[in-house]
Design a protein around this nucleic acid. Sequence first.
RNA 1: UCCUCAGUAGCUCAGUUGGUUAGAGCGCCGGACUGUUAAUCCGUAGGUCGAAGGUUCGAGUCCUUCCUGGGGAGCCA
Length: 464
Amino acid sequence: MDIKRTSIKDLLQSNDFDKSVLIKGWVRTKRGNKNIAFIAVNDGSTIHNIQAVIDVPAFEEDLLKKITTGASLEISGTLVQSSGQGQSIEIQADNIVLYGEADPDTYPLQKKGHSMEFLREIAHLRFRTNTFGAVFRIRHALSFAIHKYFNDKGFFNIHSPIITSSDAEGAGEMFRVTTLDPAKPPLNDKKEVDFSQDFFARPTNLTVSGQLEAELGALALGGVYTFGPTFRAENSNTPRHLAEFWMIEPEVAFNDINDNMDLAEEFLKYLIKYALDNCKDDIEFLNNMVDKELINRLKSVAEVDFVRLSYTDAIKVLEKADQKFEFPVSWGVDLQSEHERYLVEKHYKKPVILSDYPKEIKAFYMKQNDDGKTVRAMDVLFPRIGEIIGGSQREEVMEKLLTRIREMNLPEEELWWFLDTRRYGTVVHSGFGLGFERLMLFVTGMTNIRDVIPFPRTPRNAEF
RNA sequence: UCCUCAGUAGCUCAGUUGGUUAGAGCGCCGGACUGUUAAUCCGUAGGUCGAAGGUUCGAGUCCUUCCUGGGGAGCCA
């Protein structure tokens, strides 16, 4: 008589008492004495464990001895109402099959809590902890919600290339992609590396943004988005930066900067609400163990109207601030972290969308305002994590775009395909980039971005 | 990359103005306990004090360089 495996998530929601059930999973803890033992088993389907009750004399001593924290097994038995405190349902075990032992002398995970720094060193095993189980279930749910949101709105997902020959985005240092031998690369007459002999017959890099390609898609399909890995070879050592991260970049034809802000705000609120509605157990756990204010903060951001403020007005607010800044504020300077934090966390106490920045501190492709000084850029600033979204209305007028490209000494010839969209059937359009891991930081309450991606890539670290 | 703090047992940490044999809690292992909840109680084992140099009669402790990690800054998402 074979019983089919039930997920622990399903089992904990059932009240089919006295029914024969079978679970498979990993041991979290075992407690007990010579007569009775309790095994808490987790199978990853939920943060909650199910408790199996063992009538010790009915099992082989050698088998029970090998059931230690981390071991994998299957347990079959009868689903019963618990006679102990702390859980309402448990399994009265009839049979146990041990799959894999976990030597307690060397298995690094203990029953007690570990520091995030230690768990990061054993990233291959940290999935098995409550915290990282919760984090990565939420990561999946948010990833799914992103596709659902855009699909429901009629957007199309564009798979922008990961290898690019364009280095004109200006979004940061790039990782070179090459098949040339670094020890003896072919040289040309000028003793420079001869990339014509490389795989793509030109220098290529990992993408720093899918935006330019997304624009091409938007100017035919209307609303599109990319959601893929992004690579920045910056030597950034902070709790908010990764060398490899995931970015969502919607791009919409006929949207101006205000439509863009509406989209960004609606999108973020949708994702936060989705997590609150669909990851309740995991978020409650994180609220209890990681960040006591998490749920309150998520609820308030999901409901509040974001502040919308021009850069120029933000400067006025900062100049009047009753606080000394390390970096003085004046019109034209780029805002520092301390300025953004003041606006979001002290002055307004809610998310702020800043727009219309001086053109000198923003990218070439941004729509120029009639004042000749500012561009229609927008940054969404969140409490705790700062810039979560950066975007803009794009310059759709060929002459203005070309002028800007030449002023900034960008390689006009390499951008011929991008410029063609302005040459043929150009339209107003806008888009933005959302850093997925920064969203994850906000939704999970975790404080280091290396703990919301399974295997973080940072300077001098590509383990696993 | 810059500033700053740290690195001592499997984990989290203490270790005095430099002084003999480096400690604790938790975990592991052994024992006790008939319903446990990070179980409890008793006991044992467990150390290249991040690495390499240097100062000193003597260095976990002071100096130099490097490595690793945390926090802050810059770059950005």
